[in-house]
Simulated scan of single mutants.
Amino acid sequence: MDEFKSNEVKDVRWESIGSEDANIKFRKNKRPISIRGFFKVVAFILIAAITGGLSGAYVIKKYNKSNTNNYQSSNLSQNNTSSAESPKNAINKVAEAVGPAVVGINNKGEDFWGTVNKGSGSGIIFDPNGYIVTNYHVIQGASKVYVKLSSGKVFEAKLIGYDARSDLAVIKINANNLPTAKLGDSSKVRVGDMAIAIGNPLGEEFAGSVTAGIVSAVNRKMQYEGSIYNVIQTDAAINPGNSGGALCNENGEVIGINSLKIGSEANAEGMGFAITINEAKGIIDSLMNYGKVKRPALGVLGQSVSSRDGKIQGFYVNEVVPGSGAAIAGVKPTDIITEVDNAKVTSFEDLAAVLDKHKIGDSVPCKIWRDGSTIQVKIKLSEMKETNK
């Protein structure tokens, strides 16, 4: 029985050992599978990491490139938008509005060699049917006048009328639907207002030039060759060729017609002059309707005088126009007109200033000094016989 037990124990041990061996063998069989799986997982992770890294790098590169392009595109877009949407200032607006209505004018004359250029200037289209106002001295003595539009087209112009005293003229070209300038109200102009000059200084080469400054003075009385001009003074550059061009306010309205001739004797930098548009309007109307300006006159020719003691001052009558109001009223040569319409007269300019307030046919009271005494007469104003220079 002991032997049986011993064997039994042995068997049990063997079975136990066998069980262990079996377990060990199981582990041996299972371990290689686990290691291979582990390496597979590691390999998979490495491949995934490498692939992910490459993909990520590619995506980041594309993203950065896209962002860079978008940034540059955005900047360019912003720059273009900024440039396109930059607000226009007053000078931009005036140049665009009035510039197309300002023309170049060439004065052609005849001499021994044939047709020659006698000068150039500017003009302002005030009627879409081809009517242009300019300075008289720009077209004075011309055998032919040519007008160049801002578009570059050139037309021969015909003279409608001129007025030497005001230095204004109206010409016409055969064209329709032209851009026109708006005529403003020069009575509202103030010192310090913006002044913008548009014209063709120094000829066609600099056509459409724009200069800007301020109104330096208003209601200046300028005398030139016996005529008085009511002008606007400005520091905007006005050069040869600007004559007849537009002086505008910041609203794009013409407030004056530039004239280099007026004030040219001063020859000072920063002092330009323009005939007030309010004065020009009436003259333009007269030139359009009659081809000339009808002005009232007493009917006398003469000069200003003053006695040595200064007690007698006035307009000395050299000649009385036959059939004039002065002739009918009995005015004689050697008379001195001291008052007209209750205003003292010491020069031709004083006389002209009074007469400009009246119209043809008006009767005005006058005081005349004759042979040491003063007499009073009434003179009916007649049409002035214009002496063009």
Rank of each mutant, 00 (worst) to 15 (best):
S150E: 06
G109W: 04
S73A: 11
K378C: 02
E20L: 13
A274G: 13
G53H: 07
I173Y: 04
A343N: 15
Y162G: 14
Y58G: 10
E279H: 14
I337A: 09
R165C: 02
P240N: 08
Q140S: 14
N69C: 07
N75G: 03
F348D: 10
L76S: 12
G325R: 13
G184W: 00
E319F: 04
Y58T: 10
V354M: 06
A343D: 02
K221T: 13
V116N: 05
G310L: 04
Y224Q: 10
I196H: 06
R13W: 12
L301V: 13
T346M: 05
T180L: 03
V9G: 05
T134Y: 00
S347T: 02
K93A: 09
V231E: 00
A343V: 15
S82D: 15
N176G: 01
N69I: 11
K144D: 12
K380Q: 11
K10E: 12
K332H: 02
K40G: 06
I124P: 14
K389H: 08
M288R: 15
T68M: 13
P322I: 09
P179Y: 09
E349W: 07
G121R: 03
G291M: 05
G270I: 05
V218K: 12
R220A: 03
G104A: 04
K292P: 08
E204K: 15
I360M: 11
Q376L: 04
G208K: 12
G184C: 01
E3F: 13
Q313M: 11
K311Q: 10
Y63L: 14
T180H: 00
R190L: 11
S19G: 15
Y146Q: 10
N249M: 11
V215W: 03
A343C: 08
V320L: 09
E349F: 05
K30Q: 12
N289A: 13
L351F: 09
L149N: 09
R165I: 12
G252S: 07
S151D: 15
T374L: 06
F315Q: 02
D362N: 14
M288T: 05
G330S: 06
K25H: 10
C366F: 04
M271G: 07
A197G: 07
L76Y: 06
V98Q: 06
Y290H: 15
R36D: 01
K261H: 07
